[in-house]
């Protein structure tokens, strides 16, 4: 078939088309490789009323909450800049009454997406949390944050959480092909579950590679093409966070962000320059290099340490051997056809 199912788009186009006001939006990445450019574009396009899911709601959540894009947050971990004296966009928004937060543990949060990914309506989680305020104190999920059921086999009480199926996942990976097969390696975290639980998937990647590369390393593919809506090639797309094999964490830019995030005015100043002030990642990197030179970015490029290739080879790739004979039947194609004719198998 000659249908070209090419999903390559610009970041602007992908966010315009697939992220809508009021969506449940999940950040696919967990701590590393944050889809920073996709997050910035959501901010630049001023999405409102999002219910944000982020496993570790740190840099990504601060930017989205600081910009006023989200009014609900489901997370397990949030960032605080500047320790006791500092603050965070999340803390400021909770106190202003503009953000409701539902706290889960890492496992519970991930389990909701695993249930969603597999099509289950709920999933068992670890019952120890029943003793804690994570179970007792509830926000917008109310009764549906957790429910306790009786195991039909053991009769024991089990703690459960409901499945999550966010409207859209934005996620950054190392590489993908133009069809959307997305390859990711390193700390696997909860990346696959976040993407596969979601109704739509927008991928950004460091590089778009030939389909052949994907086919020779399918163990690295965590999201298959048929689930993906858009693929955006965005080198440095996760800066200031890191992408294994491409670049390390940018301590300088991360430090700049952390110094500013402690106050609303500081975060706004930082975002005016680095989010609103750069129309895309090319402009962002240009501005970065213009302002600070290229030494910092050059210094965090990864040196190669390649995975040993896994041999996906086979003894042969056709039913016909080197002499043109079928490997089991032992005949050439013309001998075979002659036999089919003699045995009355062919319809004239």
């Amino acid at each position: 078939m000659a249908i070209e199912n090419n999903k390559v788009m610009s970041v602007h186009g992908a966010i315009s088309k697939f992220v809508h006001d009021g969506d449940e939006l999940v950040i696919g990445n967990y701590t590393v490789g944050t889809c920073a450019e996709l997050v910035y574009e959501v901010v630049r396009q001023c999405r409102k009323g999002l219910t944000l899911y982020s496993q570790s709601g740190i840099f990504d959540v601060e930017v989205l909450v600081g910009a006023g894009c989200a009014d609900k947050l489901v997370s397990t971990y949030v960032l605080r800049a500047g320790g006791k004296k500092g603050g965070s966009a999340v803390e400021r928004a909770m106190n202003a009454g503009t953000l409701q937060v539902e706290d889960y543990t890492n496992f519970q949060y991930n389990a909701r997406l695993v249930a969603g990914m597999h099509g289950f309506s709920y999933i068992q989680v670890l019952e120890g949390a029943i003793a804690t305020d994570i179970f007792r104190k509830r926000s917008f999920m109310g009764e549906n944050k957790f429910r306790i059921i009786k195991c039909p086999y053991t009769g024991k009480d089990q703690l459960t959480v409901p499945a999550a199926n966010p409207d859209v996942c934005i996620v950054h990976v190392q590489r993908a092909d133009k069809y959307g097969n997305a390859q990711y390696w390193g700390a696997l975290g909860s990346v696959a579950a976040a993407a596969l639980a979601s109704k739509r998937i927008v991928i950004s990647c460091e590089e778009i590679v030939e389909h052949d590369i994907i086919q020779s390393s399918p163990h690295l593919t965590i999201i298959p093409a048929y689930r993906v809506d858009a693929v955006c090639e965005v080198p440095w797309g996760a800066n200031p966070t890191e992408v294994l094999g491409y670049y390390n964490m940018d301590q300088f830019m991360y430090g700049l962000f952390m110094m500013m995030d402690g106050t609303a005015a500081g975060l706004k100043t930082w975002m005016d320059e680095w989010v609103y002030g750069c129309e895309n990642r090319v402009a962002y990197i240009d501005h970065y290099v213009q302002k600070f030179g290229s030494k910092i970015l050059d210094g965090i490029r990864c040196k190669p340490f390649y995975s040993a290739p896994a041999n996906y080879g086979s003894a042969f790739t056709t039913r016909w051997d080197n002499d043109g004979r079928e490997r089991a039947i032992g005949m050439t194609l013309s001998e075979f056809e002659q036999t089919l004719k003699e045995r009355g198998k062919l319809y004239e």
Binding site: S56, S75, T76, Y77, V78, L79, R80, K84, S88, V90, E91, M94, N95, D103, Y104, T105, N106, F107, Q108, L126, G128, A129, T132, D133, I134, K137, S139
Partner: peptide, 21 residues
């Protein structure tokens, strides 16, 4: 207060489940 915190700390992350098991 949890809903209007004087200081919002990170949260559980993995802590609750790890110390449980």
């Amino acid at each position: 207060d949890y809903y209007k915190p004087k200081m919002r700390l990170p949260g559980s992350g993995g802590a609750c489940d790890f110390i449980s098991y």
